[in-house]
């Protein structure tokens, strides 16, 4: 029996159109199983992701965020992922500094041919987020005192 009230994490996945999105497609075409907890948002490049997108995902109720782009050196736009890496590094460290669990925000490099790796990454991310439970920090709140 499926337990109806069991909590399942909601994970927003920002995937690069040129690699990870195709990787997810390959995983699907190859019928590789992975947990159904992710909501995929296709972006043109990992470098196109504004850190505010990630913060907003948390605010709107995501329990976890995954950002996945091309391996270093493989960017369709030559260097988008290198710039993205610096931004993501700062964002991730800053969130950890502010007391937000590191499992909430995860990154991966997945190429278009790595359907298997994509499913593994999703499994790991979902497992990590399940371990720490629903997100409370950063969720939008209703103001009672304004």
């Amino acid at each position: 029996m499926v337990e109806l009230n069991a909590w399942e994490p909601k994970i927003v996945a920002f995937l690069c159109h040129w690699c990870s999105y195709a990787g997810a497609d390959l995983a699907g075409v190859s019928r590789i199983q992975y947990p159904p907890n992710i909501r995929i948002i296709r972006v043109p490049c990992s470098g196109a992701i504004n850190p505010l997108y990630i913060l907003k995902a948390f605010r709107e109720g995501a329990d976890g965020v995954l950002v996945s782009g091309c391996h270093p050196g493989d960017c369709h736009y030559l260097s988008g992922n290198y710039f993205a890496r610096r931004k993501f590094f700062l964002l991730k460290e800053l969130l950890i500094f502010a007391g937000i669990e590191e499992e909430r925000l995860q990154f991966s490099w997945v190429s278009a041919s790595e359907g298997q790796k994509f499913s593994q990454v999703i499994e790991q991310v979902v497992e990590g987020v399940k371990k720490i439970g629903p997100s409370k920090k950063g969720l939008k709140e209703f103001a009672f005192h304004v």
Binding site: P72, Y82, R85, R86, F88, Q106, F107, W109
Partner: peptide, 11 residues
Amino acid sequence: YRENDPNEFIR
């Protein structure tokens, strides 16, 4: 950017 920027936090 540099090619050897921190990368360990990315799977």
